[in-house]
């Protein structure tokens, strides 16, 4: 009898558990069947009337029934809880395509970007970054660079003089002269010199009275034109791309001899000739040469023992070629729509 009653209760309870659709309902089932006043407890109370043999059997059965109900309730509870959480989460659904909260983020000016890239390249090759004043003495800007006062390349009209002996530097080369002097005739010297320079030009699409240069100088024993060529090849490939080639053409600068003009193969046409390279396949990017013995001697280096190479380029020109900027004035107008474009790392 008791056995049947227990199984009956189990059947009844499990049905109610299954039917329960809310946690509250389920709890009522738990209290009703498993509670101290529940029917199972009641059945167990009547166990005293049973024989010693039957008692453990019924006891065990009663426990099994309780466990079966409890485990079913637990199972159901989890299911109901999950459903409740899911239902709640469903109401929290957002549109993930809406934009995120903006993080303020500025970036480098394109000219600085180019300068830092070149600095880092040469730092990797053992160069240090040398800097000097933007207002220079005539001596360092010209004379120490083999441009004596009577030299035709020194026209007052082309430079911003402040007094007869002081001017806005017209190139970053005086930094080379100053650095060489500091070395007191002792090599090696390996420097890269970035900085602002000034020329007495009217501003237009291709001229700017203020612009930036970056120059390099290496002085050591046995430095040769082939070393210059190799160094510039590394430069061209890093800054303009691995498939670029360089070409050296003879030229003239007072502070180098021999002097060369350096072209890189045109990116647009790959050397076949196009409007960008004026049908030549080559684009002029910088000037370079073997340091003039006069320049070495003036800075205290023995030109019999030491030789060196120097190169210099306009940062604006590099940036214009690299990014396709068509008007030099953009660099100095600082239109935020312009500045913002130089914001990400390129391969």
């Amino acid at each position: 009898m008791m056995q049947e009653r227990l199984l009956e209760l189990q059947e009844e309870a499990l049905q109610k558990v299954t039917a329960a659709s809310e946690l509250k309902e389920l709890n009522e089932v738990r209290v009703a069947y498993l509670g101290k006043k529940g029917p199972i407890t009641e059945v167990l109370r009547g166990m005293g009337k049973l024989s010693a043999e039957e008692r453990p059997k019924i006891g065990a059965l009663a426990n099994d029934v309780r466990e079966a109900i409890a485990s079913k309730i637990e199972e159901k509870q989890k299911a109901l809880e999950t459903a409740a959480v899911n239902a709640k989460l469903a109401t929290e659904t957002i549109d993930v395509t809406l934009p995120g909260r903006p993080v303020n983020k500025g970036n480098l000016h394109p000219l600085t970007r180019v300068v830092e890239e070149i600095e880092d390249l040469f730092i990797g090759m053992g160069y240090t970054v040398a800097e000097g004043p933007e207002v220079e003495s005539d001596y360092y800007n010209f004379e120490a660079l083999n441009l004596p006062k009577s030299h035709p390349a020194r026209d007052m009209q082309d430079s911003f003089y402040i007094t007869d002996e002081i001017l806005m530097r017209t190139h970053t080369s005086p930094v080379q002269a100053r650095t060489m002097k500091k070395h007191k005739g002792q090599g090696p010297v390996k420097i890269i010199c970035p900085g602002k320079v000034y020329r007495r030009d009217n501003d237009d699409a291709t001229h700017s009275h203020q612009f930036q240069q970056i120059e390099g100088l290496v002085i050591d024993e046995n430095i040769s034109m082939s070393d210059l060529k190799g160094t510039l090849d590394v430069f061209a490939k890093k800054v303009f791309g691995q498939d670029r080639e360089i070409r050296l053409r003879p030229s003239f600068f007072p502070f180098t001899e021999p002097s060369v003009e350096v072209d890189i193969s045109c990116k647009i046409c790959g050397g076949k000739g196009c409007s960008v390279c004026k049908q030549t396949g080559w684009i002029e990017v910088l000037g370079a040469g073997i340091v003039h013995p006069n320049v070495l001697e003036m800075a205290g280096f023995d030109s019999k023992k030491y030789s060196g190479f120097a190169f210099g380029m306009g940062v604006e020109r590099i940036a214009m070629l690299k990014y396709g900027v068509d008007d030099i004035r953009h660099f100095y107008t600082n239109d935020v729509r312009f500045l913002k474009q130089f914001n990400h790392h390129e391969a």
Binding site: G106, N107, H109, F160, Y198
Partner: peptide, 8 residues
């Protein structure tokens, strides 16, 4: 954003 302006 970094700007570069004229010294003069």
């Amino acid at each position: 954003y970094q700007a570069v302006t004229y010294s003069l």
